[in-house]
Design a protein around this nucleic acid. Structure first.
Lengths: 337, 337
DNA sequence: CTGAAAGCGCTTACAG
DNA sequence: CTGAAAGCGCTTACAG
């Protein structure tokens, strides 16, 4: 006969289904005795609340969609877990999905969430076909934040927030210059993407001001790419420093340099980006641009909650401050110094 | 007036709501002209399908709950993404949640998913109060797999599957012995947990057979703990090898050793566990016990699908094969050799 | 091929 | 404090 319903519970407890519903909602209006009878009946029957049915009548589902382009990257993992916890504290449930940088999968995922009645979205989008993703969101009129990457230009509809990448890149490049680097490269990041451009921008300014042509090694934001690049630098000793697109690339370079004679920190200075947990744990410890990603996640959750509850749509574009964390990898004295 | 419903669409298209429903279900019975009228009306009104309402009548929700104890650990991240993709290919949607090793959060998360009508679960559980988590699952009668960790003893209800950790530990310890290690330690893993015991077991056998007391440095499965332990080994040069609880600990040790005179691979041999992506990228590259976690994730997804669709409950306990991957960290010749 | 009616499991006024 | 009725947005037989 399938799962028991409130009608079954009502029969077993000898009350009406309205009364069962009131017990379910913890209404103070039900007498303790009745409440207990109903609860016993529910336990005896193995009653399971059907939230979909309840929501049908009473609007709000209390579900937030959290859609992430690459959950295997620790930067995004940390962001996602921070958001999820903040949302949980606010009394909402999170539906988390990884789109693996696939815009088609992202569009399918979001369409499914919309149909399931998700109340709001926080999206770190994959690059690619944005109409397939943001079109349905616009039509459904569901509040959605795009974070970390701006893919839809309609920030009036989909407010955008991200750390101030450009400032981070500037801090990194200037720091390397100040500690005596003569020739700096920029390593990693897919060419043509906004995030890459922003993180690179400060470096380009510094290189131009120093009077040499910038050198950019574009590539995937992975350890593997960083390792490859370390090999390249072995053959180009005129470079003595690099700003990396992210910490994964930088950590790959650390691993790659470990097999060469040149030592990171002493002979070659390196700054990463994101300040993921591993940055402080590597040897030499990696200097990095800290984006305060956990705090950023909490802020995004709070912003979406305010939008949902009080109708306060966030500003079209928000940039949050970043900070350079200096560690051994960019320290003239080098490891142990 | 809130979101348009099929009634609004029906009015706009000049048909009955049944016809709209048939169009929604792509029924071949509707004439092309009518279908087009209805679709135009839906587009004009910005109609959004309400899946919750549909499911109310027609049972299956097509949602799988994927509940993970620590999504920040790359081993679990890789597992989760593999499962999610396999489930997506099977035409189901995944609801992914991170419980951050908190059994209370896990219980709340799963209860919420049950109420939302999730059809089945794959759970890598947090240690702790299992009644709060598995009680509601049992009452609801929803198929649920526990994977990677056995927390509920009721494997008849909640089939358990994991890589053969004990065999992996044995392979690692025997490999170190065979390559000439004289005194081996076991590093990392919380004491008292089943996974720790299993991964340690082979090591204990080898140590006993070699005639020395086993040395176990228990601790959190993190890079930070591995780094600490590297310091300890600096003061205890009689040890020349270690099996680590997982790759994070081992990579922490690699970083810790990098600042000492002793070299991993040459003076000290190291084997990790899980073979996460970073293992191959570190320097020296890390030997590790490969659990084939992506394949394992696909298998778990397939097992749950078979259970849901054909009622085939998996065996109470499944162990999947593991494999030792030999790299520089346990190679006598050492890095570069 | 299309329409009128009942029902999915709840909640929500409204009586009593 | 409790019950009878209507309704949430769909699907599902069943007529026509």
């Amino acid at each position: 006969m399938g799962r028991p319903t409130i009608i079954d519970v009502a029969k077993a407890a000898g009350v009406s289904k309205s009364t069962v519903s009131l017990v379910l909602q913890k209404s103070p209006v039900v007498s303790p005795k009745t409440r207990e009878d109903v609860q016993n009946a529910m336990a005896a029957l193995g009653y399971v609340y059907n939230r979909a049915a309840a929501n049908l009548r009473s609007a709000q589902v209390g579900l937030i969609g959290l859609v992430i382009n690459d959950l295997r990257n620790p930067f995004f993992t940390e962001f996602a877990t921070a958001v999820q916890m903040a949302i949980s504290d606010a009394g909402y449930a999170t539906v988390l999905a990884n789109t693996d940088e696939d815009p088609a999968l992202q569009a399918r995922t979001i369409a499914a969430m919309i149909e399931h009645g998700v109340s709001g979205f926080i999206i770190s989008p994959a690059y690619g076909d944005d109409a397939a993703t943001f079109g349905p969101l616009e039509r459904a009129g569901i509040p959605a934040l795009q974070v970390l990457r701006k893919v839809s230009a309609r920030t009036d509809l989909f407010p955008f927030a991200a750390p101030d990448y450009a400032e981070g890149g500037r801090l990194a490049a200037q720091h390397l210059l100040a500690t005596g680097a003569r020739r700096i490269a920029f390593v990693g990041g897919i060419a043509g993407r906004a995030v890459t451009a922003e993180r690179m921008q400060g470096y380009l300014e510094v290189a131009r001001a120093a009077g040499y042509d910038p050198l950019v090694l574009s590539g995937r934001p992975t350890r593997a790419f960083g390792r490859e690049c370390a090999q390249w630098f072995a053959d180009h000793p005129d470079y003595d420093a690099a700003v990396c697109f992210n910490d994964l690339v930088a950590l790959g370079m650390v691993a790659g340099f470990a097999r060469q004679d040149r030592r990171i920190g002493r002979d070659f200075r390196l700054v990463g980006f994101d300040d993921i947990e591993d940055a402080a744990q590597s040897y030499p410890a990696l200097s990095s641009v800290q984006c305060g990603i956990a705090q950023f996640g909490q802020d995004m959750a709070a912003a979406l909650m305010a939008w949902l509850r009080d109708g306060q749509r966030p500003a079209a574009e928000t940039r949050t401050p970043v900070q350079l964390i200096r560690r051994q990898s960019s320290d003239r004295a080098g490891p142990g110094g």
